[in-house]
Design a protein around this nucleic acid. Sequence first.
RNA 1: CGGGGCAUAGCGCAGUCUGGUAGCGCACCUGGUUUGGGACCAGGUGGUCGCAGGUUCAAAUCCUGCUGCCCCGACCA
Length: 423
Amino acid sequence: MYFSKLFVPTSRQDPSEAELISHKLMIRSGMIKKTAAGIYNWLPFGLKVLKKVETIVRTNLNNFGAQEILMPMVQPAELWKESERYDQYGKELLKFQDRSERDFVLGPTHEEIMCEIFRSYAISYKDLPINMYQIQTKFRDEIRPRFGVMRAREFLMKDAYSFDIDSSSMEKSYVNMKNAYISIFNDIGLDYRIVKADAGNIGGDVSEEFHILADSGEDLLAISDSSEFAANVEVLNYDKDPSELDGSKSPDGKGKLRIKRGIEVGHIFQLGQKYSEKMSANLKDSSGKDINVYMGCYGIGVSRIVAASIEQNHDDKGIIWPYSIAPFHVNVICLDPSKEEVLKECESVYQILKDAGHEVLLDDRDIRAGNKFTENEILGIPFSIVIGPRNYANNKYEFNSRKTNEKLELNIDEIKQILEEQK
RNA sequence: CGGGGCAUAGCGCAGUCUGGUAGCGCACCUGGUUUGGGACCAGGUGGUCGCAGGUUCAAAUCCUGCUGCCCCGACCA
């Protein structure tokens, strides 16, 4: 992609609306643009990152046996009345009417629709387990949306639902999804923790959260320094200031608790029969008896991961993308594109790397060098290659790492080698 | 929903107290000089001062009502 053809409206000033660093940087790097409180546009650069996260999520879930579907965002209120969440869910549930005054809601989650799908077919216990997911825009009318896409009203979520014949197979489905999540978050490559969690108003007995660690995280996590114990402090029923937990004995008796801040990006639940009872999502077991299906549900805040990544990885110059979700892998910075021989050399390097399967940006804009360097840093592209009149005839190129700030003189094969190792 | 703040050019802001021809920086456009770390000089475009009423000879400025946005809290993936 040629930079001159990309719409990336960067800004050198912090927006007045933003407080959080990820929010500021997402606006300054031209990734997002707000339309209303908690409602955002994803511009080309931001969308590239969002799609990267989406692809990692999709690929892993498919590998772990889940099947992608797409459910409607607009849902009839009747289903929500049936599950009794029409009144319970609270004002976060956006309600409205169509032209003939029928009640609808804008989907904040899809247990009701999922049950409706399940119960409308004659499904045998032999068909189970079934696990279906979607990656879709959700709407929750937050009391106070804030921090950009971190806590938006409209946001991109992956939600998955598993169906099993009994409790023990539901647990197997749950563990399978937990493993899928571990694989997803390992692939993304951010520092994360899995903690015991409060199931909140989704319901169910067992639930765990995936948190990306960051000092700005809204959740406090209590993590043992010498065992597997890790929990959201919400579940500890501790009546004092949670920061006092730091250094106290771990509930499992092993080691001391350390308090860390996290951003919740995934939450998995064993729902049991909570929804299937209310919604009559049944099937027959091997003895012919009607059973309410055992469900699990599994969420990932896809758009939130983008912001959380920036919270965890940035410096005073801008974003630092992990290779896995970077909008581009390498930026070929052409310092004087008006000189034909320089531009030719840049295009040649660009093409070679592209042909080798890397995602390359060519900054061919006829602007000052400093602007290109500074924007490259704000945008956080992992590697850059600087080619100018001074060094274009060389067979060595200036190769820079955004993360380490390292500057190397490398030939094209050495560069290919390094990029190959990142995959 | 309670408390606090803000709304003036694309962005960031001053001007409001004390009413009297709407300004600054950045961005953008023209020309020139520059050209490896957000260049410089000269010129230029761009505003129903959030909206609706009111007071006044005169309102960005004073009064009333409304709307939107931000922060703190309660709440929540």
